[in-house]
């Protein structure tokens, strides 16, 4: 395989994502774990750029790093004396490891030709391999996303449902957070 600049970038971002993720689960200091989570999310944003989905990349940074990570940090601070705890492996790790293995297996079957060999033809998504010529891909622009959001043939109903979901999340959060004050 030829080592293109794209490939190098892909390896760097994958390393950031995986390495960050690994550090999140192994770090004993929960604040450091949160910082590594941001690193991992940043790597994902880079992967989105490589997939020519810049809108998703910007959203990834804006929402996940700029908002959700901040929320995570606030949640950490909200919990008294979390710093003093040494967080060790809890009892759930075998279940998590099993789930990971299953997910990995499914991805392997669906995304690579291995699936075809084991489960018969046309099982895997026919992604191009090194031998094939790259297929024509049309990249989605922000305008097209917007058109899809607001036309009847597109996703206008999911679009509104998202809003409903966000509102209920907001109301739910307020109710939970102010529980003690007996609203």
């Amino acid at each position: 395989m030829e080592l293109t600049w794209q490939a190098i970038a892909f390896f760097i971002f994958s390393a950031l994502t995986l390495g960050g993720g690994f550090a999140v689960v192994t770090q004993r200091n929960i604040f450091h774990a949160a910082l590594f989570l941001m690193l991992s999310l940043f790597g994902t944003a880079g992967l989105f750029v490589l997939l020519i989905a810049p809108f998703l990349a910007a959203v990834q940074v804006l929402v996940y790093i700029g908002a959700i990570a901040i929320l995570v940090l606030f949640a950490i601070m909200l919990t008294r004396r979390l710093m003093g705890l040494t967080i060790s492996l809890n009892q759930q790790w075998p279940a998590a490891a099993l789930a990971m293995l299953v997910l990995f297996g499914v991805l392997l079957l669906v995304l690579t030709p291995v699936g075809d060999d084991i489960l018969g033809q046309n099982w895997s998504a026919n992604l191009p391999t090194d031998g094939d010529t790259a297929p024509e891909v049309t990249y989605i622009t922000v305008r097209e996303i917007g058109v899809a959001f607001s036309t009847q043939n597109g996703f206008v109903l999911p679009f509104e449902i998202v809003s409903l979901l966000l509102t209920s999340a907001l109301i739910g959060a307020i109710v939970v957070a102010r529980e003690d004050e007996a609203i």
Binding site: A75, M77, I145, F149, L170, A177
Partner: peptide, 21 residues
């Protein structure tokens, strides 16, 4: 602080949907 962060998060996601619109 946490409440502000939650409200902010909800609005942030909303704005993300409004950009393409």
């Amino acid at each position: 602080y946490y409440l502000y962060a939650i409200i902010f998060l909800v609005f942030d996601v909303e704005m993300v949907f409004l950009f393409p619109w």
